[in-house]
Design a protein around this nucleic acid. Structure first.
Length: 420
RNA sequence: GUGAGUGUAGCUCAGUUGGCAGAGCACCAGACUGUGGCUCUGGCUGUCGUGGGUUCAAUCCCCAUCACUCACCCCA
């Protein structure tokens, strides 16, 4: 009985793994072009970090964290998201990271104990970026331009960007109160879930998919109408910036985020008609988080995360990597295996991939394998040529072949690689 | 956490109203005793997810369990 893998955790096999690597490198390259350099933080953090950053009463902290007590009695948690660890690292290494703004990005696995579903796993992966140390809405526009540019370059079309503002400490409480009062007046019309949400997290009611609730909240007060002057100006600046950058977007005053730390700008890239998990990337501004985590100074910040699995889903199978085999060596007799093997190793050392059959199969079978391997040429080590120190080089596409010296054959194969 | 569906050869699936299981593809060998892709011929492979129960007998019925899928919830 083989040991099964853990629920919701998947092996990523070639050639899919090749596409993952390619996606990650293109992300890091794009990030570098915008000034974001990679940070690698531990997968494990103290549970307290997420409890404080993400919010005690969020679903993530309440029931989705992989937490355990380690041998020293400390409660540790496998990170459910990437922002809190990066902020923690920023505060710990403030002096080493240079002047504001500090731009960091990351890639890696995150863990949440949810019921697995299409586009949702227990170990999933994110590409993320965070920009620290400026309140300027230019930062919001920059981060969105980076994200939107990356998604487009990755080959994603049909995405739409939705933006919203959650206000700040000055205006959000008033809005909460206003919304709460409104919902109280409509209590009877709400679904069971929403009645519960009404007191705990009123914003969620606006996001309910139930038709009754959507109807009942049609004329609910909008957060965007309740913003204080600074928040309103900030939001409008971001909108103008996006327009100037040629990035299409839509306001969505009902957009809700699952983490408590967001302030002001929030955004999501969604794919219409992709099923339940239609958010491929999301983020927002979190100006208060550094202080919540014990930072002495205020560090305004904005960032995003992209769901790699969801992005891969959208990009489809694609061509998929896999390294092409340049040449396949056929040994017409087992006594040529040594020679063929030595040549194969020699080519590998030069970065050329050759393959051969080690099992002593018939020439016919070796050719069949050569064909399937996709090799451009087959090199035959045979009796007749051996006396002359030569081999037969066959072009698999055309079927033409000729006899050349072994050294010449090697030179050609190395040349073949260089032509690409 | 809730609900529904699925789980049979490497892959995609069929199947028996309960009697120790099949197809296609793939794979292997052969159809010229050094040469592939097409065609033809032959061949190999399964604890019928796992553990119990009912039965003379279960892959097919019952219970449990695990995994996967989809939806809800929530989120990347």
């Amino acid at each position: 009985m083989i040991v099964p893998s853990v629920r919701g955790m998947k092996d990523i096999l070639p050639p899919e793994s090749e596409r993952w690597s390619a996606l990650e490198s293109s992300f890091l390259a794009k990030a570098a072009a915008y000034g974001f350099l990679e940070i690698r933080t531990p997968v494990l953090e103290r549970t307290e970090l997420f409890a404080r950053a993400v919010g005690e009463s969020t679903d993530i902290v309440e029931k989705e964290m992989y937490s355990f007590t380690d041998r020293s009695g400390e409660s540790l948690t496998m990170r459910p998201e990437g922002t809190a660890p990066v902020v923690r690292a920023l505060l710990a290494h403030r002096a080493e990271l240079g002047e504001w703004p500090v731009r960091l990005c990351y890639t890696g696995p995150m863990f949440r104990h949810e019921r697995p579903q299409k586009g949702r796993l227990r170990q999933f992966h994110q590409l993320g970026a965070e920009m620290f140390g400026t309140d300027s809405p230019y930062a919001d526009v920059e981060v969105l331009a980076f994200l939107s540019g990356f998604l487009a370059e990755a080959g994603l079309d049909r995405v739409s960007l939705e933006i919203n503002s959650l206000g700040d400490a000055a205006c959000r409480p008033q809005y909460h109160q206003a919304l709460s009062d409104f919902l109280a007046s409509r209590e009877g019309l709400l679904c069971e879930d929403c009645r519960r949400r009404r007191t705990r997290n009123p914003l969620r009611v606006l996001d309910c998919k139930s038709e009754h609730c959507m109807e009942a909240t049609r004329d609910a007060p909008s957060i965007l109408d309740s913003l204080c002057e600074p928040c309103r100006l900030h939001f409008e600046f971001v909108e103008r910036g996006l327009a100037a950058a040629g990035i299409p977007f839509a306001r969505n005053p009902r957009m809700v985020r699952g983490l408590d730390y967001y302030r002001r700008t929030t955004f999501e890239f969604v794919i219409p008609g992709m099923g339940a998990q239609n958010t491929v990337a999301a983020g927002g501004r979190y100006d208060g988080l550094a202080e919540m985590l014990g930072g002495k100074e205020r560090v305004p910040a904005i960032g995003f995360a992209i769901g790699v699995e969801r992005l891969m889903l959208l990009l489809g199978e694609g061509e998929g990597g896999g390294r092409a085999v340049e040449a396949f060596f056929v040994a017409s007799s087992p006594r040529f295996l040594d020679e063929a093997f030595r040549r194969k190793m020699e080519l590998a050392g030069k970065g050329v991939r050759a393959d051969m059959d080690y099992e002593g199969r018939s020439v016919k079978a070796q050719f069949r394998r050569a064909d399937r391997s996709g090799a451009k040429v087959v090199v035959v080590f045979g009796e007749a040529e051996d006396a002359r120190g030569a081999v037969v080089v066959r072009d698999m596409a055309s079927g033409s072949q000729e006899e050349v010296s072994r050294d010449e054959a090697m030179r050609r194969l190395i040349g073949l690689k260089k032509e690409e």
